[in-house]
Every structure is written in structure tokens, then in C-alpha cells.
């Protein structure tokens, strides 16, 4: 899932400054799960903003709404509020939601309330950690399921650097060295041969090397076209 953190309140207030009617829009997707952009957090932010507006004597009306996902056209009809009726929408979605909604409502500024941080898993109650970086060419098959791209600070592909110290990464003594974990896991699995193989430098075209990445299922596009013609 996508993990995001709430932006500092003052930054949000500053973004809002010129607006009078604002909608806080929660997202029911990943950000609800990681407890940063769901309905509860949207209501909290809305009341914080109302309070601040009152204290600062700002002329600001805040309302809130929520949809299942801001990254999918399908759910737009479930909106109770009409984003077009507001000076701005404070989106509680990840960057994908903010960007996609901005495209759907070109007249209304959608402002981000979150910093979208990583693709992660819920590792302990209230804790999330990064597991993948969407590199576009997955190598987990030969690294014992531990991602060297996301979990090694240098995204190395041929094994541990000289910086590993007591199993920790040179960057942070609290952080495991991914390559030591990979080594141990492969050893347990009896697959150290995978560690021994030289991996050529990565092809960054699948990553950021070629601009915006897309996924198109041709059969679905065709089906849709046939249906609309019928």
C-alpha cells in the first residue's frame, strides 16, 4: 500500500490562505489504512482549521466529505459535495489522488495535505515500513524476497557495501543492512549461489529513465470500445 504522512498544520494553513470556502476530502484507500487521510483524520483537520480560522479572524468555511478512492473515476459519483462549488479542495489522498482529482476538476485547485512517502507494509501496530520502490524490474526472486532497491540505502545489486556494521546500515544504526538480511536469508534457503552471481548494472528505463510509466491492458480497451459501439 501507499504510505503517507500528514503535512505540518502551518503549511496547510499557508496553502489555504487566500481561500474562503474549502472542502476537506478524505480518501478511503491506503491513507485510511495508514491512519493519515481517512474520514477521521479529515474531520480532525477540518475542526483544527475551523478553530485556527476563528482564532486568526479568517473568513473561512470548512466542510468535509469522503470517497472510497480518489484515484479511480468509478467512485466520483459517490461524492456528496461538489468540488466545483469550493474555492479549493484539501485532498487527504496520496499524491496520486491529488493529481488525478486535479485532472477531473480542472477548475478547482486540489491541495495536498499529505506527503506521500513510500510503498510499505504495516510492520507493527501503528508502524509502517518501506518494502518496494516500484523499480519496474523486480528482483525479489533472487534476493530471498528482500528488496535491495528499496531497502539498501544505496540500492546496491551485488551485495553488501563496506558500510555494514553489526548488521546495521551505515546510514542509520537503527536500520538493518538489507544486504546482510539478503545474505542470511539466501544462506538459510541454501541459495547463496544467487548472491554469488554478478548482476549487471540495472536498466533504469523501467524506473525513472523514460518519464511517465503507464499500464494498458489492450483487451480491456477493445472490450470497452465494442460495448460502447453496440
Amino acid at each position: 500500500m501507499i504510505v503517507a504522512e500528514r503535512k505540518p498544520f502551518d503549511e496547510i494553513l499557508e496553502m489555504l490562505a487566500p481561500q474562503k470556502r474549502v472542502l476537506v476530502l478524505a480518501c478511503g484507500g491506503c491513507v485510511t489504512v495508514c491512519l493519515t487521510g481517512g474520514e477521521k483524520q479529515a474531520d480532525e483537520l477540518a475542526s483544527q482549521l475551523r478553530l485556527a480560522a476563528r482564532q486568526k479572524g479568517m473568513d473561512l468555511t470548512i466542510e468535509s466529505d469522503s470517497i472510497t478512492r480518489q484515484c479511480d473515476r468509478e467512485f466520483i459519483e459517490n461524492l456528496k459535495a461538489d468540488p466545483g462549488q469550493y474555492d479549493a479542495v484539501l485532498s487527504m489522498a496520496c499524491g496520486v489522488g491529488v493529481g488525478f482529482m486535479s485532472e477531473l476538476y480542472p477548475e478547482t485547485p486540489f491541495l495536498p495535505t499529505l506527503n506521500t512517502t513510500f510503498y510499505g507494509a504495516n510492520t507493527a501496530p501503528g508502524a509502517w515500513a518501506e518494502y518496494c520502490r516500484g523499480c519496474g524490474d523486480c528482483v525479489l526472486a533472487w534476493t530471498g524476497g528482500i528488496c535491495p532497491v528499496a531497502r539498501c540505502s544505496k540500492s546496491l545489486i551485488n551485495g553488501t557495501c563496506g558500510g555494514t556494521n553489526d548488521g546495521k546500515c551505515e546510514v542509520d544504526q537503527e536500520m538493518d543492512c538489507a544486504w546482510l538480511l539478503i545474505y542470511k536469508r539466501l544462506k538459510e534457503l541454501g541459495r547463496l549461489d544467487e548472491y554469488r552471481k554478478i548482476r549487471p548494472p540495472r536498466d533504469h528505463r523501467t524506473d525513472r529513465g523514460r518519464g511517465v510509466r503507464r499500464l494498458v491492458h489492450e483487451e480491456m480497451v477493445e472490450l470497452e470500445e465494442e460495448e460502447s459501439q453496440a
Binding site: L156, I157, G159
Partner: peptide
């Protein structure tokens, strides 16, 4: 940080 290649890649 760049790390486009690692030390093995540089030697290659």
C-alpha cells in the same frame, strides 16, 4: 545519491 552502478558494475 546516484549509485547508478555499484563497485562491481564500475569494474565491469
Amino acid at each position: 545519491p546516484v549509485y547508478d552502478v555499484d563497485s562491481v558494475g564500475l569494474l565491469q
